[in-house]
Amino acid sequence: MEKKIIGKAYVLGDNIDTDQIIPAEHLVYSTSDPEELKKYGHFALSSVPIEQAGLPFGGKPFIDGDNHKSKFNIIVGGSNFGCGSSREHAPLSLQVAGVKAVVAESYARIFYRNSVDGGFVIPFESSSKLNDKIKTGDDVEVDLESSKITNHSSGETYRLRPLGSVYDIVKSGGLFNYARENNMI
């Protein structure tokens, strides 16, 4: 597990649901075929209303043109991130698009589990509301050991909640690795 995640922030509002993260019509592509998998990255966050895409100004699509990788690799959300359906394709599509971590005030249960158990992205909970403090495109750094996020563009540092009981699964890279390391399977 990396100790630091460094990159550019993509900022979203509250209640980003799984239909906004990956619209249901795209859930038909193979998750095993490397070429088809790229489509999940290409359509990641494609149903976020354009005025809400890349706050505070909006109008910034997460993916440019035909790409399947985003230039942003840390998502900063508000409360109840990932609400809605159980589709694991949601954290998967963020991972395919190059996202390493999501920082949000709170998460919907299934999205949080999927992110951790599938080892797709690390879901950090922030101690305070950050999606009105960090701007899309800011250079940010998440420090896993000290549970902090630093915004190098503004010089501000904010606390994150420790990963707690899921830390061991995150460290292993997912539920299956964790279970193998603990001789459960």
Partner: peptide
Amino acid sequence: TGVGNTDAAF
């Protein structure tokens, strides 16, 4: 309750 694919595979 609902779960994702990794949990279901497990």
